[in-house]
Amino acid sequence: MSLTALDRWTPLRAPAHWQAVDFISDLHLQASEPATFQLWRAFMERPAHEQPDALVILGDFLEVWAGDDLLRADAGVGDSDFWRTCFGVLLRYSSERPVYFMHGNRDFLLGAAAASTAGLTLLDDPTVLDFHGERYLLSHGDALCLADTDYLRFRAMVRSPDWQSQFLAKPLSERLAITRELRERSEAHKQTTGRDPAAWVDVDGEAALAWLAAARATTLIHGHTHRANRHELGQGCERVVLSDWDANAMPPRADYLRLTTQGLKRHSVYGSLAA
């Protein structure tokens, strides 16, 4: 991912009639966490007057994805019923407004077939959003965690077309077993390093500034780190970090970020649903 490539990309240009764009990430939806799924479903089914003109999902929307054929699998295989329900909610929502999806480190195998099933438009990581003349740089954020060298090596491997082709050629049952093993390793790593996101590797500030300069933008919007916050980077630049979602946490976590012509504002999903 070269910085110079950013400058050559055609930005995602918001139409003039868009007045609001919502951003979410790191929901980690899975059948074993029904409370978070139900919270997200209620968020998606809010009245039309509370909805944005477009929704942008910046990765790790799904806890794991072993291939688009999960949506065609027999009932009960790899939680296929749960995934079909999720994608049905997305399709109903995307029939009313655009929904953009950027891959995260959990759902990077979501492909064109699944995106089409849900009415999603796939975004490159990173992508420049041009909203009423202001440029915002969008990313999942994992590629900027430069100190996590082991993960970055793994990321380079699994994002390569050859690795993905070989993996997706395996039987679904084998892929599901591999993804279960990877999740177990991830959980074991969290137990070793601590489950508090404050102890995890964070985005590198200098790298974020370099991306912003290449993109001719001043604000980076990203997820991945589970550290919802707003950080001044200097040189008139900032990065805004999205919330992860966990309805079972104490207190529960679920925010979305709304972009309007007045700028960015963080909203609690719980507050939005109670209003």
Rank of each mutant, 00 (worst) to 15 (best):
R155H: 05
L122A: 14
T149F: 04
R84A: 01
L138F: 08
R106M: 08
D74S: 10
K190M: 10
W83S: 04
F108C: 07
G67L: 01
V128Q: 03
Y93H: 12
L146D: 13
A156I: 00
K170P: 02
S116V: 10
H189C: 06
T149R: 13
L110A: 02
A115T: 14
T149E: 12
L109S: 10
H140M: 11
A113T: 13
L70Q: 14
F131M: 09
R155G: 00
D162I: 11
P98F: 05
D68K: 11
Y100V: 05
Q166W: 03
L120S: 06
I57F: 04
A66H: 06
H189T: 09
R153P: 02
L172H: 04
P126A: 05
Y136N: 08
S186Y: 11
R153I: 09
F131K: 02
R153H: 09
L58E: 04
E187A: 13
E184N: 09
L137F: 11
C145Q: 10
G59Q: 05
A114D: 00
E174M: 13
R180I: 10
R84E: 03
G133W: 09
D81K: 02
T117E: 12
S160L: 08
R72N: 13
S139N: 01
Y136W: 14
D74L: 05
H140D: 11
L168P: 11
E96C: 14
L138H: 02
R155P: 00
V89M: 00
H103Q: 05
D142S: 06
S95A: 15
E96I: 05
R72Q: 14
G88S: 14
Q164Y: 03
